[in-house]
Nucleic acid binder design. Sequence first.
RNA 1: GUGGGCGUCGUCAAGCGGUUAAGACCCUGGGUUGUGGCUCCAGUAUACGUGAGUUCGAAUCUCACCGCCCACCCCA
Length: 419
Amino acid sequence: MISIPKGMKDVLPSESYKWQFVEEEFKTIAEKYGYREIRTPMVEATELFARGIGDTTDVVQKEMYSFEKADRSLTLKPEGTAGVVRAFIENKLYAEGLPAKYYYITPCYRYEKMQKGRSREFHQFGIECFGASGMMADAEVILLAYDVLTSLGIDDAKLKINSIGCPNCRAEYRKALQDFLRPNLDKFCDTCRSRFDRNPMRILDCKSSECKELVKGAPVMLDYLDEECRKDFEELKALLDVYGVPYEVDTSIVRGLDYYTKTAFEFVSDKLGAQSTVCGGGRYDKLIEQLGGPDTPGVGFGMGIERLLLVLEESGAEMEADKACDLLICGLGEKARIKALELAKEMREFGLRVIIDVMDRGLKAQFKYADRLNVPYVAVIGDDELSKGVVSLRDMNSSTQEEVPENKLLEAVFTGFLK
RNA sequence: GUGGGCGUCGUCAAGCGGUUAAGACCCUGGGUUGUGGCUCCAGUAUACGUGAGUUCGAAUCUCACCGCCCACCCCA
């Protein structure tokens, strides 16, 4: 037997309706805020991610699905933003006027070891807003994410926000942080020591208790923000207050992708095992320029669909499975069967979901079939009905049955629905 | 890459050195030949992850490998 590659998952019909539901919800909300769908390819030049995400990040260094084809290095997208930025630049969408607001639903690929809330293929909803440098955009992006979560009934996801400053204040902070850490550097764990030069900010959220202890009293990014960044952060908080979105400032939020500036935020849930982020995003003012586009600010988020579904599941949310079908028609005998087919075709043309038992089983079996599929109505046509020009229509929920004229079948089923 | 836990029919699950390897659910058929969900009966299955080893004998013990899950790391 050939089995599914490690880290991949099938979404079966017993689950797919949930996907459809949350995807619809997301689309509807994104469109309410004026976002439009963009679809970019699964595969991009490896270079796009190396430059966009940052080639010192773990994602780029060891998690990408890359391959060579015709002398080019290509990569399955590990996240959604880079591709959208590339499309924005390449199609000169900035000429259509700003802000440019896009949403997408996409699979992403990261070669990682699986655990709860983490797989090698996962799916994201995301939005990107290009062109606005002010905090109104950030607040709106966060509000949208909040809107999606709450409208799905997730009320315990906590919003954490932080500002990681612009390149200027970050450089200063970085120096201050390194100065603080340097004297005890040899006492930190291996990974932390290796991060000292690369990305000292990540040392702050190391989980080892020794490192945590050593990090106490370290300078905080927020204290090193320059005038502009500080004002922006204050404004963002004020705007969130206006929108009534609860948040807490968490200075340890440091997005793992290099392109973020200023605003960084996460919605976290404790229902995801060791993973906690259900949605992560922030501002990336230099990314578009860095990828060869005009100097254009941006802000957006990515929301993990699997994680979203996990949170929903763990919190016991029930999504009603849509009935697969409205009516089952069974014809008994040669002639009646033909009649059944004709009727089914006609009913479908009127928009009804109608099944015929293609296994041509006995009546009893067909009723069981209808029952298993939770079909509300079954129409039976036999010789009797045929000669009278009627069908026997059974309401499966009330176990009542009556003969209705053939040409009234549609009406009967519909009025049944209204009850 | 590094730890920990787990692998028995499609699913759940007994068995803990000698059994025809239970049981339940699901599925299929039937309970007087045109009616489901409840009930009763019957039927179907190449289930002990793979390979070695210990033993007279292994699903049961040992080892290796594989797979799954969880955690580190990283992130959605």
